[in-house]
Amino acid sequence: MTMLHTVNKSPFERNTLESCLRLAKKGSAVLLFEDGVIGAMQNTKFSEKVSQAMSDLSFYVLGPDIKARGLSEKKVIDGIKVVDYNDFVDLTAEHNAVQSWL
């Protein structure tokens, strides 16, 4: 089994997404939530980096946090799966540990 990494900050504010991408092992999952959802959006200066990381990592983004910020699920980078809190729980259960990048 692999690890679930969570990132809850915007890449414009913190380096947690960057650190996560740097140190998450190939095959791991990354869930973006809270302000972390900003890292899942298309056409930001970080979008390309996230798209590239998708060859090694599977990405998820928490839908309720996207909606709360007035963003559209349609503008999420292709290949990132939009999930809800139930899926968040499932992802946690399906992976052998959770690393929260704080």
Binding site: T2, M3, A97, V98, Q99, L102
Partner: peptide, 18 residues
Amino acid sequence: GREELTALIDEQDVVLSF
């Protein structure tokens, strides 16, 4: 190095972040 650290983190059962 980065690669060694990546492997080390991945083998943990519990990660506490500060």
